[in-house]
Structure formats: structure tokens, C-alpha cells
Design a protein around this nucleic acid. Structure first.
Lengths: 257, 257
DNA sequence: TAGTGGTCTAGACCACACA
DNA sequence: GTGTGGTCTAGACCACTAC
């Protein structure tokens, strides 16, 4: 559906409304069309999208307009540009930097990978708070997954992960254990769910008995509580996760500007 | 100093070096010139910089090239664009959103301001760790400032702030107390030090006796420890701060993508 | 050599703010 | 109305990658 060649504001259909004119630049419309193609699976994670000139021809706009749309999608990490090669759909699998969303760094800047250990994966009724966050209907089932991440035999992270049962039908701890690479990579390739962005709420809490046992610390030990709500295209929430981090030899890094 | 009008790569001066050609796009050079003008104080925080056309004429490049340079500085929060009005130097003072770098949010989304209380401001020899972070020479003096931020009479944040004594000569707790607005605003207007970006390292810790007293919690209570290194132009570190946050009814928010 | 993204230009017109 | 930033176009050339 090519938009009108002359860049006109979407014309007001109702003359005396108090709301704004809802003007939308062409490149924003192109951007929305690109997101729709991503959402519809026209291009899959890791694949190249058509070249800028092809897209310009398809949408009947100039290359510069397509470029601006892609630029924004690239800064939002939906796309990745590679000079001389093309523009690619971002992916959590096959990435050099694994665990794109995990902001935990070791005090000594070592780069060894994480030792993963899946505890269990149960299907159950979601608590009201989880249902609300994930937009589930009352009584709709969810999956509760627990796992740890460790370094040199010592557990550092304990994650409790809530997922809507529908899109993740067939997910088991065994399946996760045998998949090499980050969890979000498996979600992409096996369930077609792509994590685009997330919000985290961070607090300091005292370890309860269960968490203390799993993280090998004393009850009451201060832990970082990281509550993450992850979203896919269209800002739809698809994961609620609560991580407990032992920050004795790791820290959560953040950059401000 | 206008760069060469023909956009040529800075020509290789050493033919057989294994290093790259150090090609730098024109708009990056313009960007560097703009940063230099900011650093030299040609335009002060809150002021407007010249229009894009003026800058294009000054640097002998097209408006589009200036635009791209400004775009990047705007996304880095060094400049703020306001359609129809101009482009302005970012400031911590006179901002609608005060405390630009404080990522602490109340559980109920209330927007009441912070109650500030300055405890003391002492000039002293900086510990080695602080000297290293701030790039001070051995024995060079520093200021140690302590303060709390509270809501409804309850302290929530305890900050311990290290500053190089030189640039902040004359800073006292009294002066801070009588200044309305965020501390970084005063740093800008009174000392010409502008905080541009910062890195934070976040951990969970147990309250020690002193902190517990000041934050009105029991010793051992879990607190969020936020260590912030703030930088000014040229990535020079100018502040090392350690905040202890009571996250009983507040959380540190972060967005991932 | 061909194809991709990256840079740069020049000019037109639009949306917004302010006097 | 004038000046500002914002959008859009068309075309040229450069840098990088792969064949």
C-alpha cells in the first residue's frame, strides 16, 4: 500500500474536533509498514531485508525517506545495518554478545559465559499480578520457569519467569537445557516470539529461605531484585521475570545521559 | 576553521602503516567543532546556538551536514531541538524534569519533589580509589559532600559525593542548601562544570550502622548501592558518587532495548 | 565489478513559534 | 510575516563486502 506521493497530512475527516491534526511524516508511515512486515514474519530474525533502493521503489518514496525510517529502527535495535552487506533483522540467537538484556558484569572484567541450570517449568494459574502485567484473561494459564545462572560453579542469578502458556505451548525445562544459546534465541526460533524491549524495576531485598538456599547465601543476605517486563512488536507484554542477583562479585551496569 | 570544502578523507600521511586510514565523515568533524564551542563556553547551558543555516555558512558545508551533526548531539542529550524556536544547549537547571540522572521512582506514581538535606561538606585527601577514578594526582585534595533526599519526611537516598577540590573551590553545604533546584544546576551556573553522561554500578548491600541511622532503618537492612561516575566534555570524570537507596517504596527504573 | 549502506549536496516545501 | 527546525526529493560520489 504505497502512501500518497505528495507528502500531505492525513486530511481531517471531522472538521470541528478538539483533537490534534494527527500529522504523521512519511518516514513514520514507512517505519510502521516495515514493523508490520517484521511482525508478519516477512523477514525473519537474522535475515536481510530488501535494499534501501528496493524498498524505496516498493513504497514509492525516495531512498532518503526509507533511510530515515530504517535509521530509527536501527537505533531501536529492531534492525542492524552492516555496510556493504545489507540491513538485517536483529536477533537474540547467533549474536556475538549473548544475553543482550542481562546487564550484569563481573568485577574482574572477565568474559566467561554463564553456566545455566534449569530447575523446573510448570504450567499453572497465573497470580492476578502476573495476569495483569501480561494481559491474560482471568484464569488463563501461564508457565512458571525457574533457572539459575552461575560462574565457576557458583550460582549468581536466580530467575523466576512467567510466560503466557498459549504462545509457548510445548516449552519444557528439558528443551531449554538442550538448547545452546540464550533463552530468547530459542523463543525466536521455536515459538516465533521476539523480545524487542523491556522495562526493569530494581530493588534491594533480603534473601528468603528458598532463594538463599538456591543462591548459596545466608537468609537475609542482600540481593538485587530485578523485575523485568519484556515486550514484543506493538508493545505487547510477553514475559514477566523476576531475577535475584548476588552482587558480591558482580554489578548491574547502567549508562546515563 | 572551516574544513576543506571537497569532502575528502583525511589523506594518509604515512603510506605503509598497518593502522586504518582514520577516515572521518564531514559531519563528525562538524560535530567535534560544535562540542569544542560548547566546551569553550561559546554557548552556555540554556542558550540557543546559531541556526542551522548560520552554522552551515560558518563551516562552509550544507545544512544537511550540520543537521546530521546536531542530530547526534541531540540524541546524546548535549543539545535540545525545539521546532520553530531553535536548538539549545542542554542544562540541568531550569528543566521541567529535575534530577535528570536520578532513576528512582515512587511505587505510587506520584511526582512530588525531593526534600533535600545537606549533612556536611569537607575538604580532605582523596582515597586512592577516588583519586584514580577522578584522575587526581597523588595527594591532590577533594571535597566530600554528604546529603539525603527524602519524601514526606522520610529519607530515601543517602549520597556520598566526591568532587575534585580545584574546580569546585568555594563550594559549601550552606551554598548548596540555599540554592533551589538540582545540584548539577548549581555546578553548571556557579562552577562551569556540566555533567554530560555517567556510568552507574549497582549492587545490593546491607546497611552499616551510620547509613542505617541516617536512613532510619535497622542495621543490615538491604539497600541499593548506586556508584556513579559522572563525566563532562571529553569524557573527563568530574564526580564520583555513591548513593544508598531505600527501595521499600521506591524502585530504580531502567529500559532495555 | 557489482551491490550494499554511508556521506554530501541543493533546493523545495511544511509545521511551529512569536511578534 | 519571518525565522526556526522538520520533511522530502534527486542525484552524485565514497567506503565496504563479496564474487
Amino acid at each position: 500500500m504505497p502512501p500518497e506521493p505528495p507528502p500531505m497530512p492525513a486530511d481531517a475527516d471531522s472538521p470541528a474536533l478538539p483533537v490534534g491534526p494527527a500529522f504523521s511524516p512519511l518516514y513514520q508511515q514507512i517505519k510502521a509498514l516495515l514493523v508490520k512486515s517484521l511482525q508478519d514474519g516477512e523477514w525473519k530474525p537474522g535475515e536481510a531485508i530488501p535494499s534501501e533502493l528496493e524498498l524505496a521503489a516498493r513504497f514509492r518514496v525516495s531512498q532518503g525517506t526509507v533511510r530515515k525510517a530504517i535509521d530509527e529502527l536501527a537505533t531501536e535495535n529492531l534492525l542492524v545495518r552492516r555496510q556493504g552487506k545489507g540491513t538485517f533483522v536483529a536477533t537474540h540467537a547467533e549474536e556475538k554478545i549473548q544475553y543482550r538484556f542481562l546487564r550484569l558484569t563481573s568485577d574482574d572484567g572477565e568474559a566467561t559465559g554463564w553456566e545455566r541450570h534449569f530447575l523446573d517449568c510448570r504450567r499453572m494459574r497465573a497470580p492476578a499480578e502476573v495476569s495483569r502485567a501480561l494481559g491474560l484473561k482471568a484464569g488463563e494459564p501461564a508457565l512458571l520457569l525457574r533457572r539459575t545462572l552461575g560462574r565457576e560453579g557458583v550460582p549468581v542469578v536466580l530467575d523466576e519467569i512467567w510466560l503466557p502458556a498459549g504462545p509457548f505451548k510445548g516449552l519444557t525445562a528439558e528443551r531449554l537445557a538442550q538448547y545452546a544459546g540464550p533463552m530468547y534465541g530459542l523463543f525466536e526460533t521455536e515459538f516465533g516470539v521476539r523480545m524487542i524491549r523491556a522495562e526493569e524495576k530494581i530493588r534491594a531485598v533480603a534473601a528468603d529461605a528458598v532463594s538463599a538456599g538456591l543462591l548459596q547465601v545466608a537468609p537475609g543476605y542482600p540481593l538485587l531484585s530485578v523485575e523485568r517486563l519484556s515486550r514484543t512488536y506493538g508493545d505487547q507484554a510477553v514475559e514477566l521475570r523476576r531475577g535475584l542477583y548476588n552482587t558480591a562479585s558482580h554489578y548491574y551496569r547502567n549508562e546515563l545521559s
